[in-house]
């Protein structure tokens, strides 16, 4: 564990807490893509199957349990508790275009041809694009509540922090994980547009609005 990874994980944790806080306090999941949230549940469940047979550390264990349970809880909030505030008509990204290619990529690129390792690869590929329905929705509506943008910024920062972590691990442990690194770079790149508007508008106290 190095500081970059710790900052990354903490920022991931923060993003989820911000999202839950937004839904609870505004009593609404307006502006949040259900599809993206459902993809995250898929990501965590398919990646953290090793909870059942592999022990890494107490930290690792609790984080995995937290990510699975909190992402399921968010789906519950969106589909049950605050269902009327969820508008599927603007959440129109076709996720089969993400699931299919990620499944094929996972069958081609993996470290071992076993069910859990292929699912692990699948989860890494899927995570890198899981934010697309959310960004697509943002693009469509052209605006977002400030708290939603803080959520997205924390989520983007999470994978961004993992990049220096991988460079650091390469130097100190001589470890490279090509699947995670490639997908991580793609994932971070998807946020660049968002970050530009976030830094130039939201952090200057303005509303998040995309140019028409």
């Amino acid at each position: 564990m190095n500081l970059f990874r710790l900052f990354g994980d903490m920022s991931h944790l923060a993003s989820i807490l911000i999202l839950v806080h937004k839904i609870q306090t505004t009593r609404s999941c307006r502006g949040i893509s259900f599809k993206t949230q459902a993809l995250y549940v898929t990501v965590f469940v398919s990646r953290y199957l090793d909870l059942f047979y592999d022990w890494v550390s107490l930290y690792n264990f609790f984080m995995k349990v937290f990510f699975i349970s909190s992402s399921c809880y968010i789906l519950y909030l969106m589909k049950m508790k605050f269902r009327p505030t969820n508008d599927p008509s603007i959440d129109t990204f076709r996720i089969e275009y993400l699931l299919g290619p990620c499944a094929i990529l996972a069958l081609i690129f993996h470290y071992k041809f076993t069910v859990t390792e292929v699912l692990w690869s699948f989860s890494i590929f899927l995570e890198s694009v899981a934010i697309l329905p959310q960004l697509f929705m943002l693009q469509r509506t052209g605006e977002a509540e400030t708290i939603t943008t803080h959520y997205l910024a924390a989520l983007g920062a999470y994978r961004a922090f993992y990049i220096p972590n991988w460079i650091y691990r390469y130097w100190t442990e001589d470890i490279v994980d090509p699947i995670a690194v490639t997908s991580g770079i793609v994932q971070t790149a998807l946020y660049l547009d968002f970050f530009y508007v976030y830094f130039t508008k939201v952090l200057q106290g303005q509303k998040f609005e995309l140019p028409a």
Binding site: R5, D9, D50, N60, F67, D177, A180
Partner: peptide, 10 residues
Amino acid sequence: DGPYEHHDEL
């Protein structure tokens, strides 16, 4: 075992 026999990152 290779370094990614298990995955320690989240």
